[in-house]
Design a protein around this nucleic acid. Sequence first.
DNA 1: CTTTGCATTCTTGTATGCAAGATTTTTGAG
DNA 2: CTCAAAAATCTTGCATACAAGAATGCAAAG
Lengths: 229, 229
Amino acid sequence: MARDTKISAAEHCYRTLSRKIIGLELKPNEPIGEHALADLLGVSRTPVREALSRLSAEGLVDLRSRAGVVVAPIRMDAVRTAQFVREQLELAIVAEAARQSNRRILLGIRQAIEEQELAIAEDNPDLFFECDERMHALYCSLAGREGVWSFISDAKKHMDRVRRLSVQAGQLDQLVQDHQGVLEAVIARDPEKAREIMQLHLRRVMLDLSELGRRFAPYFELNAARTEE
Amino acid sequence: MARDTKISAAEHCYRTLSRKIIGLELKPNEPIGEHALADLLGVSRTPVREALSRLSAEGLVDLRSRAGVVVAPIRMDAVRTAQFVREQLELAIVAEAARQSNRRILLGIRQAIEEQELAIAEDNPDLFFECDERMHALYCSLAGREGVWSFISDAKKHMDRVRRLSVQAGQLDQLVQDHQGVLEAVIARDPEKAREIMQLHLRRVMLDLSELGRRFAPYFELNAARTEE
DNA sequence: CTTTGCATTCTTGTATGCAAGATTTTTGAG
DNA sequence: CTCAAAAATCTTGCATACAAGAATGCAAAG
């Protein structure tokens, strides 16, 4: 509560909206009005607007000039692009990480995985995703490339909603097994194996993309909406 | 001139400022005031602010709360991170491109390279960089991954100012030779060779980074500024 | 001459007002 | 009942006003 005074209202709006969108608390294609958000967040339209502008640049909301704001639908091609970007970056990162060794970071990774198991046991997806993020970020640190995480993170935003959907259908245990496999390979200093497992892992999440597109059609772009340029 | 009516003032501000910053028309560490920019761009502070907010998220400007705005200094670590990201993405792209073939796109690439030679002959760096961008974007198209270009583009922003500096010191001819080499390898359907030449190419630009840091010290972060958090 | 404390000035952060474009509803004709 | 056109409503985009924090300059004390 000491930091609340330090961050601006606009930043607060950005983080809150970002979290709500990625967490599917705000549904894809759901219309959101600046005024409504301002009321909800207890600020005026100006900082909300600033946040929406940034979110629009990231592709998380669509600003339709003078015709309203909607939470961006999940776009298949954006997801595929993000998947490609993430895969290239994370594979390079984990291979590099497997050449390093830093007891403190490795311990952090192990702990993150354990917390993931705990989160599954508690049926707490939010916690699971948080620990998942922490783990992947730690691999960047281990590889000596902390800065890369923000790029991965940007790409991931387009995939996270899909992951949320597949969780509802899903099996998180397998993901934790993957994580353990990667960690073992990294500890064993086997870059190729680490890459291999990580690749399988990253692709696993996207496997049922087309099925999700059917099951959650209203959240996706290519369904009832054919009005496009 | 038909589109000017369609883009918002905020978008106009964003593009103009972005261009001026990357083109070193606005110098790193140069203080810029919202009010001054508003006057310069002929709009009020609101759209300027929106643009600055986005630029800040990209790391091109630093917003110091209530203490002014400055063009972000060139940060060595940000450049290195961007280099890593770009390399991973572009190498994967060009390798994939070398497995495709599309006469129209290949022609576009060849033409872009020719225009680069022209730009050098005319001593027109702006034109050179424009054609360079077009060429790299075309490789994304050829690989069937157009969306990836925007990620590369984001990373590149942190490197472009360095490239500008090295041009003043520099030899562009070698770069064009690299481009031709890559194109030949792609046409010859040799992904490994394409990767290899592209890697050399991408790294060449960053070679004299530390020397530039000395020569253009005031543009960089790690010089006289030790005030940091 | 240096240093410390204060007042002034500047600059941003947020709220609000207003106008223009888009959407929706209503109304009227066929 | 259907469809079209116009009015009313809604929503954003931009400009402006105001307040709070930061930097600067100045004066006074040592």
